[in-house]
Every structure is written in C-alpha cells, then in structure tokens.
Design a protein around this nucleic acid. Sequence first.
DNA 1: ATATATTTGTCATGTGATTGTCATATAATC
DNA 2: GATTATATGACAATCACATGACAAATATAT
Lengths: 231, 231
Amino acid sequence: MSEQHILIVDDEAAIREMLHLSLKKAGYEAIEAPDARQARAAIYNQMPMLILLDWMLPGTSGIEFARQLKKDPQTQQIPIIMLTAKGEEGDKVRGLEVGADDYITKPFSPRELIARIKAVLRRSASLQQENQQLVIKELQLDPSEHRVMLKGQEVQIGPTEFRLLHFFMKNPERVYSRNQVLDQVWGGNVYIEERTVDVHIRRLRKILAEHQYEHLVQTVRGVGYRFSIRE
Amino acid sequence: MSEQHILIVDDEAAIREMLHLSLKKAGYEAIEAPDARQARAAIYNQMPMLILLDWMLPGTSGIEFARQLKKDPQTQQIPIIMLTAKGEEGDKVRGLEVGADDYITKPFSPRELIARIKAVLRRSASLQQENQQLVIKELQLDPSEHRVMLKGQEVQIGPTEFRLLHFFMKNPERVYSRNQVLDQVWGGNVYIEERTVDVHIRRLRKILAEHQYEHLVQTVRGVGYRFSIRE
DNA sequence: ATATATTTGTCATGTGATTGTCATATAATC
DNA sequence: GATTATATGACAATCACATGACAAATATAT
C-alpha cells in the first residue's frame, strides 16, 4: 500500500497541490502537511524518503524544523530540499548550514523540481553506500561503527589501516598503484613517500594474518596492490 | 530518454546557451550547470560522457573542481575540456596538471569546439580500450586487475611477459619484428639486445604451455613473431 | 599540564623474483 | 652437409618488495 514517498511541507494548499501533482506525474507518492507539527506526525507514521520543506512556515519555521530533523538520529538521514521564496543568497547559505541537501527557488518548473529530487536521492543513495557495512566472507567492516570483525571477533586496527581496508573492500579485484592508494586513502594533497604504502600494507596484513586472511591483500609486482576475494 | 550527454559548466548563461546550441547542432545532448555544486548534482544524477568546464567559477573554482573529479574513482575517467578566457600559458599548464584532457581558449569557433570534443572522445575511447579485458578462447587477460586466466585458473606471470602477452592479444594475427616488439613492449628508448626478445618469448610460451596454449605464439622465421588464434 | 601510549612516516637491510646476456643445442633452409 | 636462425638453460646483476627498528607526531590518560 504505502510505497516510498515524499513529504510535502508547506502552509499554502495551492502550492502543496501543485507539488503533489508534479510528483505524481513523475511517479512519486506524496503526502502533504501544512505545518511542522503535522509533518512530524506524518514522519512518525511513516518515514518519507525525502522532504520538500517550505522556508516560511507558521509556528515552527522551516529552517528550525530542518535543524530539528537533522539533529534527531532517527530522521537525520532523510534528505531535505528547501523551498525558498526569493533567491536570497543568505537563505541559501543558512539553509545548507542547517543541513538541507538542496534548495530550490520559487517559482520553479516541475522539470527542475524533479531533476533536483532525482539528484538528491541519487546522492543520498551513494552516501548510504559509503556508510554501508562491507562483508567479505568472515571479514566485515562497519564504517558507521568504525569496527572490523574477523571470524566474529573484533580486531584492533589503527585509523590508517582502517581506511586502507575500507578502500580495498570498496574496490576489490582491481590493482592500484601506490600513488593511487595514497590519493584515495591519504587524500591527494599530502606528500608522502610511496614506500610508506608498503609499510601500511604490511600492518594491514599482519592484522588479517591473525585469522589467516592475509592472502586477501596481494602484491602485484611492478604495479601495486590488489585486494582479492578469489582464492 | 537520456542519451549519453555532455555537461556544460559555466556561470554565464549566455555562454552556456551558445555551447548548448553548438553541441545540439553537432548531434550531442547537453546538460547545463552554473556552478560546481550543481554540476556535481548533475553528475550524480547521470554520468556525462564529457565535461566542458569553465576555468573561472563562483564558489569552487573550475580548476579545483576538475581536481576533485579526477581524484574520485567514480568520475576520474570522464574527460574534461577546460574553457579558459585568455590563452595564458600558465593556465594551460595548470589545467593539464590537474588532469584536464584538453583546454580551449575563448573565443573559439563552434567548429573548433566540436573538433576538440571529437578528438578527446576518441582518445578516451581508446584509453578505455586499453583497460579492456581481452579474451581469446580460454585465455583471458584483464589489465585493470592485472591478471591472466588460463582455462579458469589464474596463472603466474612476470611483468615483462604480461606486457608482451597484452601487446600480442591487442594485435593478433600480425607479425612483428624483434625490434618492433622491443619498441612496443619495452618502450622506444632502451637499448636491449634483439635476441633478448627470444628469451621472453620462450618464457611466455612456457607459461602458456602449462595449459597447451603455446601454439598461440608463433615464430615466423627470418621475420619475427606472431600471435595467432588460428590453429 | 604532564606523562604515557598509540600511531605514523621514514629508513636500512634482507630476500626473493625478474631481467638481460651469453653459450650451446636444435631446427630450418639451401 | 654447410649455413643460418631460433630455442633453451644457466647465471649474475639488478630490482622491487618485505620487514624490523626508530623517532616524530598525536592522542589519551592522569
């Protein structure tokens, strides 16, 4: 019955109507709320996958409401698109500061609205992917908990080795040169000796070796390293 | 609905218009973005096959944006053509350093623009081909994984033999003299004994022979070697 | 604030794999 | 059979990576 839906929060019924129609045409389910109180009730009832939130609201203002949503762990991952009346620069900035994922200035075309929604959903999907738990056989890495489990046991791992393992688990089976690893794991604007990668590879292997998983990190002589799931 | 398209990133609407029109005439789909943030959203929404990126942008500068794109594995293979206002030499250099694939100086003719685009797309296509998995019967070579599989089993192969096999698989059915092989596989500016090629051919054959595939590497007496799929 | 522990990057050294060359064996051609 | 071209095994030099140690930098505890 209730698909993934979008919550529209705006005090003007005409605008809600208009948005609702545009969304329906684009194949989205929508639910309306005229103010923050009723919006909260709707969210409690069922989590929307995205919220269209008017800047100006009676009672709790849109910006305050957004701030509350982004503070609550239950709702903070829901993307918010702010609807602003004027294209005032200050508003944009404050909106994004509050944690809105995008803003759109009235008046706008349905096409633009849908494009923004798609973009935001796309982005949040890939962000969730970033925080996704990665599991390979009996090795699992949980980015949100910053934890690595090996055969059901938590293993002690340093920050750099954690990032290195995370990177490898996200991109298995592919060879990366030391420089590519430095770019991805250390970030591009540090100057670090290429050979340092070797050392951290060794440290990672040492950890994996505690449970005979060191073969996952493979050396490709003359090229770099590869994280492989295959035997 | 959405074909392969080109993303235009420029803060001046007039220039975007102009570019859009030129591209349309040449048969390309185009999408516009006025700044880096919206460009990013557009990219997340759908990967463009090429990006036209203005040097000067409000907020994140074009050069910084290019750097970011080239760092992210998701986007780094998208070719970028930088649009620079003046033909300043320093800009060119910095642009190419950042990883832009070409630059073009305003003002430019639509003809020139299209020519550059075609050239860059051609180049990137052949680069992608460079990373393409090559399969011949039960022999497969994967450059991105830097792996050779023979009858489903990974085979152990040294760097030079890998390059040699890669070269042959890219250019089968053609005879190459020892010198041509040296140029292609070792690179043009090394002085190495011609007979050394024989030795590496032998080493390659030895590997292939583990699975009775040594007949693929054939000697053409008095001329050189050939990699042939035929019996 | 100070002490202590952890993490980090670099280096020196060890080790094994790879490479180019040569000497010799083998095969093809006339 | 003589000549020429290629195949092959052996070998030393080199190269790339692994590893342990260490000091500087960071984080954490007291």
